[in-house]
Design a protein around this nucleic acid. Structure first.
Length: 422
RNA sequence: GGAGAAAUGGCAGAGUGGUCGAAUGCGGCAGUCUUGAAAACUGUUGAGGGUCACACCUCCGGGGGUUCGAAUCCCUCUUUCUCCGCCA
């Protein structure tokens, strides 16, 4: 959520920058400013009322002590009126503050200046490509056919025991999955990220902290009896680790990584685009999360991009990087780069990583702050990225590494799989 | 699941109705000393709102209540610890 003071001081700029998201926020922004003024006014009135009754109370105490009970009782009557007034003002203040907050929840982050204009994923800007697209033999198959042919992933079995979008990995498929998780975690920890094992269910406060609530409630699985949510990404427990924290400058930067399954209710549309591993209700992902000094966050962002590039280079997968346009960048993010791997047999790019800088947007909700050099409290910047999401990497490997007599395993993974061919 | 105890600043930990936003220690910051560092010493140091700046207001796990006045008393919820039960 944006900071009110920032909105107040940069009204025109905020509206202009939000327009990049094809959002005319002028009305909302003005309402924020009005509500905020109202809130401050009420706060002042309440403060003054309370100040008055505080000083009366002191006086009464003193009078009682010096034995002037009659005078004290006289003053007591006065406080009744003040009490009523402060109660009314308090209620008004709460109402106003609630409306202000509800409105703030609806305003997305202001995009970074480098974010290109555009409406949809078609307007994203390709900024980098690497790797050769392999020439496959005749009769090369998409990964869901390969999965069946080599009996490594069983989609029907998943449907039987749970439902569509919950695949069952078998034999070498399961082992390859585990190999990828271990390999990614090793790469991330070697780069300085601390490994965490995080809960797969989170409470409501965590959902609010990273912005899944209140708006995207329907996208998470909800365990009603205990009012918990299945995580859609490790970003949620991982970032909420730092909720309500006041760090010292020396604690920064913080980098953590963790493997979790991810659960998403709205897994997507229909047809070939959601076949196989392309879109799932449950999938595995290794995530990297950073908490940074604001001055350093874009440098850290570049570092994360380089890190993911290095992994894809090692896996020898052809990929490209997109800078998401204003219409496609997610609600909380100021700048997002997507990584896509080329899935040769499907002849299309598949998103495998999304790296974002949220600047202070999440930190403001989380109350994640640090003491800067001058001893002042300041909001941190938060960032995260997939490093990496498993299913589509797996799809890319299966499709790009297929040969007429089996699927080869990328060299760097062989120590993890213990076999070099499926 | 049952019984008991507890929740206070970045951390540890005092504080049982007004003089408490809160002792003390640690940590942080600044300084003295030192070639430099450490140690020692001195000073400083909670968060949020509000203000040009002050004033002022709020916050002692969350919510409610008693009282002129609550960290302190009462109710309730949550969490933690100890003991018992169950258990991978």
């Amino acid at each position: 959520m944006l900071q009110v003071a920032f909105i107040r001081e940069n009204r025109d700029d905020v509206i202009k920058r939000l327009a990049k998201r094809n959002l005319d926020a002028s009305q909302m922004i003005d309402e924020v400013i009005t509500l905020d003024e109202e809130r401050r006014q009420l706060q002042t009135q309440l403060d003054n009322t309370l100040a008055e009754s505080n000083s009366l109370s002191k006086e009464i105490g003193n009078l009682f002590k010096s034995g002037k009970a009659a005078e004290a009782n006289e003053l007591k009557e006065k406080t009744t009126l003040l009490k009523e007034r402060s109660k009314t003002l308090g209620e008004q203040l709460n109402t106003t503050a609630d409306s202000l907050n509800n409105l703030l929840y609806k305003i997305p982050n202001v995009p970074h200046e480098s974010v290109p204009n555009g409406n949809s994923d078609e307007d994203n800007e390709e900024i980098y490509t690497e790797g050769d697209i392999p020439k496959l033999h005749d009769g090369a198959l998409p990964h869901w056919e390969l999965a069946k042919k080599y009996d490594i992933i069983d989609f029907e079995l998943g449907t039987k025991i749970t439902g569509a979008g919950f695949p069952v990995y078998k034999g070498k498929g399961a082992r390859l999955q585990r190999a990828l998780i271990a390999y990614f975690l090793d790469k991330n920890t070697a780069a300085g990220y601390t490994e965490y094992q995080l809960p797969h269910l989170v409470n409501e406060a965590s959902g609010f902290g990273t912005g899944q609530l209140p708006d995207k409630e329907g996208q998470m699985y909800h365990v009603g009896e205990d009012n918990l949510y299945l995580i859609p990404t490790a970003e949620v427990p991982g970032t909420n680790l730092f909720r309500d924290e006041l760090l010292s400058q020396n604690d920064l930067p913080i980098g953590i990584t963790g493997y979790t399954p991810c659960f998403r209710r709205e897994a997507g549309s229909y047809g070939a685009h959601v076949r196989g591993l392309n879109r799932l209700h449950q999938f595995d992902k290794v995530e990297i999360i950073r908490v940074e000094h604001p001055d350093n966050s874009y440098k850290a962002f570049e570092g994360m991009i380089e890190h993911v590039k290095m992994i894809l280079r090692e896996l020898k997968l052809p990929y490209r990087i997109l800078r998401l346009c204003g219409g496609d960048v997610t609600f909380a993010s100021a700048l997002t780069y997507d990584f896509e791997v080329f899935s040769t047999a499907q002849d299309r790019w598949l998103e495998i990583s999304s790296v974002s800088n949220f600047e202070t947007f999440q930190a403001n909700r989380l109350k994640l702050r640090f003491k800067n050099q001058d001893g002042k409290t300041q909001l941190c910047h938060t960032l995260n990225g997939s490093s990496l999401a498993l299913p589509r990497v797996l799809a890319g490997i299966l499709e790009n590494y297929q040969t007429e007599d089996g699927i080869k395993i990328p060299e760097v993974l062989i120590p993890y799989t213990g076999f070099d061919k499926i």
